[in-house]
Write a protein that binds this DNA or RNA. Sequence first.
DNA 1: GTTATTTTTTAGTTTTGTCTAAACATTAAT
DNA 2: ATTAATGTTTAGACAAAACTAAAAAATAAC
Lengths: 219, 219
Amino acid sequence: MNFSVSEENYIKSIYHLQQQSETVTTNSLANEIQTKPASVTDMLKKLQAKKLLEYKKYKGFRLNATGNKIALNIVRRHRLWEYFLVTKLGFEWDKVHDIADELEHVSSIELIQKLDAFLNYPQADPHGDPIPDVNGKITVIKQQSIADVPVKRNVIVSSVSNQSPEMLELLKHYHIGIGTELKVNMRLSFDGSIEIKVSKYAACIISEQVAKNIFVYHD
Amino acid sequence: MNFSVSEENYIKSIYHLQQQSETVTTNSLANEIQTKPASVTDMLKKLQAKKLLEYKKYKGFRLNATGNKIALNIVRRHRLWEYFLVTKLGFEWDKVHDIADELEHVSSIELIQKLDAFLNYPQADPHGDPIPDVNGKITVIKQQSIADVPVKRNVIVSSVSNQSPEMLELLKHYHIGIGTELKVNMRLSFDGSIEIKVSKYAACIISEQVAKNIFVYHD
DNA sequence: GTTATTTTTTAGTTTTGTCTAAACATTAAT
DNA sequence: ATTAATGTTTAGACAAAACTAAAAAATAAC
């Protein structure tokens, strides 16, 4: 089945609101999607007719299994594009959301498959949120600050919590970006600083303060 | 000014039809865009109101300077995405058109700038058609078959006219793809076969028959 | 447990882009 | 030069997705 851009936006937004509260209300969805409650009611009827959610007047609503699967597919596309925009095109973390909001509606299945392969099957987007697989399955990755990673373990950078220009400059200097593979060589217990090795570059030392801002996962 | 997906499709299609005939007719545009003549008339009024074309009832039409500039921007986006799909995602030449038709409507200017840079400012799409620059300027690149390229000149592969599986296999074997830089080392006048060097790979010999299908340009 | 407030829904419009069927221009045919 | 055929436009309708204003339901306040 095929959905309009508008329908996909509603589905995605309901999915997001569901993460926070048990049932979603008309007003909260209207607010999320920047529209009026009356428009939400109209669309709910449509989505119910398409059997993507259960909805009883005045009682709130949730996506059903079908709706959730479709939502996860949209989320998957969104996060893959975000990853692409940051790691390949050099966008900064906070600039990619709106563009990914447009790209996510391009509907070719083959496109997303090939994009995923091209990006080397990333597990999390630049904000650290997990990327669902083709079947909508989310692998809950154990993200942790690099400050807490055991030594000698290969990890992949998933996100950076501090996005100041200074931090960006430092990361660039050490060749660290989203998707970068690295290993913690050792940890100095005196001040918590760690030595890391990034692919072919010489090992370098980063302070605990910096390390705490860099989040990683391993397979 | 901002245009809807539908408006952009009309603008692009008028642009394409203009290349072939002096003025564009309602019927030909309806046919090109897979719609009815009545719908075309409606849209023409709208595009005229937005001052993108001159149009007199029953007399055919053409984009004016403004319209042309917008069309060239859409064409630019389309062709950059096609180049991306082929060279980065590994799509085949003939599969990319429909996907690029969707991607071309994503409206971020910064996105296209960065995509262009990421692709290393290609001058032609995988079908050999030139890519307009940011200002809509088309550099008429002198494409020629590699069979006709003087020796010792660095060139970039822009398109391949024969897309049979055999040709694709051969190109892959010699590491030749769209955007590949190569040099003709020498030409054997006996049978017209040429020796080429592709980046860091060992030089190899290709027959004149193959060479005639590979089109290139130089700066 | 009424009344007041908030939330949600309905009813009726609007805009965009499409369509069909009929009317009108233009071009071709005899 | 009429008539026939073709191409184009108008008029009116429709679907999608939004809106406003008013009605109805649910919740909160006293």
